[in-house]
């Protein structure tokens, strides 16, 4: 019994170096070395995504992902998303994008800043906000 255990231990010891050499990168915690995506690259990624989105499903999936992060998407991303909604002919999704911004920003002045920045876009597309639709 004891000799058997000893031999097992010895074999393990003999095997270990190669195992360790192979397994070391696997055992490193993947979470410890995540690259932090910068806000700019995030924006670029989603602008590219929305510019290439082909149909409503993809646009809405992208919006879900984009608004799930702990940040407010930049105006460039919003513009790309609204234009994508225009491309797939869905008015409601375009309105919903602005509703999502209103939900994500910290205060009303930030929302107003987004609205001011994107006013040309809304006028170009004839887009009303939810507040404008339901004024009464």
């Amino acid at each position: 019994m004891r000799t058997q255990m000893l031999s097992t231990v010895l074999r393990a010891a003999a095997v270990r170096p190669t195992l360790a050499a192979r397994a070391a990168p696997l055992l490193a915690r993947p979470s410890s070395s995540h690259a932090q995506e910068s806000f700019e690259s995030f924006s670029e990624r989603y602008i590219a995504f929305f510019q290439n989105a082909e149909d409503l499903f993809e646009v809405q999936r992208g919006l879900n992902n984009c608004f799930a992060h702990d940040l407010v998407p930049s105006t460039g991303v919003v513009e790309a998303a609204v234009r994508a909604a225009r491309r797939v002919n869905d008015y409601a999704t375009a309105v919903r994008v602005f509703e999502g911004i209103k939900e994500k920003v910290e205060n009303k002045s930030q929302y107003q800043a987004y609205l001011d920045e994107l006013k040309p876009l809304r006028e170009e597309l004839g887009l009303s906000l939810k507040e404008e639709l339901y004024t009464s």
């Binding site: 869905d90 008015y91 409601a92 309105v95 919903r96 639709l133």
Partner: peptide, 17 residues
């Protein structure tokens, strides 16, 4: 979208969201 009336806009929004 500029040609849509407010009722049509509201209907589109209501039906979707």
């Amino acid at each position: 979208w500029k040609e849509l009336t407010i009722d049509e806009k509201k209907a589109a929004y209501y039906v979707a969201f």
